[in-house]
């Protein structure tokens, strides 16, 4: 005579084996996306003595940071800051002669309960000589990132982050804090920040900004990032991390 348990037991075993949460990894967007725009506010005074003031390290700053992940386990995160790139005689960005301008840190395996992956500290990224020039940068420049937190849940894929930073130019130094966003989308109006394509009105593709982020066309951020007058950047409407539409 059959016993019904022999049907139930293998089913329960398989159910137990299959339970659990789906694994997610810590995601950081690669350089090919064009880098993260880092808009930061100074959190204290400029230090370093005479001549170290707002003209050297202003209260609000924008920079472009490109991140990448290295290694078989993809745990090492590296970054390069556009502000650290050497320039040629005309003031245009030039190729660095070495990779000393790269900062390195370690990231976790999986996001935490809030979907965040943290790189506690990076090594300092120092500006280096240009390949075309060979002369060390004068004055020396560097940036150090700490407590960099990426919004890495699958729906965000690391496209938003916040970080502390210390910028040093010569003997002057200042601490900053701000948000990071990729991709960097230029705009003329809020409509250009629409993440949805609108081919009938000439927008073949959306802005690329995650639809879950509250953004608007920000002229001030555009000016901060060196855009022409009338060109803004699609930027968060708020300043706290994380910026997610309710």
């Amino acid at each position: 005579m059959f016993k019904p348990s022999f049907l139930v037991v293998p089913l329960l075993v398989m159910l137990a084996a299959c339970g659990g949460e789906v694994n997610t990894t810590c995601l950081v967007q690669r350089p090919g996306l064009g880098g993260y725009l880092f808009v930061m506010d100074r959190t204290g005074a400029v230090t370093g003595g005479a001549g170290c003031d707002d003209s050297v390290l202003p209260p609000r700053l924008a920079d472009n940071l490109r991140f990448d992940k290295l290694g078989a386990e993809q745990r090492e995160v590296v970054f390069r800051a556009e502000s650290m790139l050497p320039t040629d005689a005309d003031g245009n960005p030039d190729f660095p002669a070495s990779t000393g301008d790269v900062g390195r840190g370690q990231i976790g395996d999986s996001p935490d309960a809030q979907g965040v992956c943290t790189v506690p500290t990076f090594t300092t990224a120092n500006a280096v000589a240009a390949l075309s020039d060979g002369n060390p940068p004068n004055p020396p420049r560097s940036v150090t990132l700490t407590n960099t937190r990426f919004l890495s849940a699958p729906e965000y894929q690391g496209s938003q982050a916040e970080s502390d930073a210390t910028y040093t130019i010569g003997s002057c130094s200042a601490s900053y804090h701000g948000l990071l966003l990729t991709p960097i989308a230029t705009c003329a109006t809020d409509a250009d920040c629409n993440p949805f394509a609108d081919p009938a009105n000439g927008r073949a593709a959306g802005s690329g900004v995650n639809p879950l982020y509250p953004v608007s066309c920000n002229m001030e951020v555009g000016a901060l990032y060196g855009q022409d007058p009338g060109t803004g950047i699609c930027w968060f409407t708020g300043s706290t991390f994380p910026q997610i539409q309710k």
Binding site: V22, T24, T25, L27, R30, P31, G32, G34, G35, R66, D68, K69, Q74, R80, L85, P93, D94, F95, P96, A97, S98, T99, L131, A153, P154, E155, Q157
Partner: peptide, 21 residues
């Protein structure tokens, strides 16, 4: 291009593809 100054090699498709929770 300036995205990879002084870098000759780049990664593609390294990450496991994220899945909608």
């Amino acid at each position: 291009n300036i995205a990879r100054p002084n870098v000759k090699w780049r990664n593609l498709a390294v990450d496991k593809t994220a899945v909608d929770p």
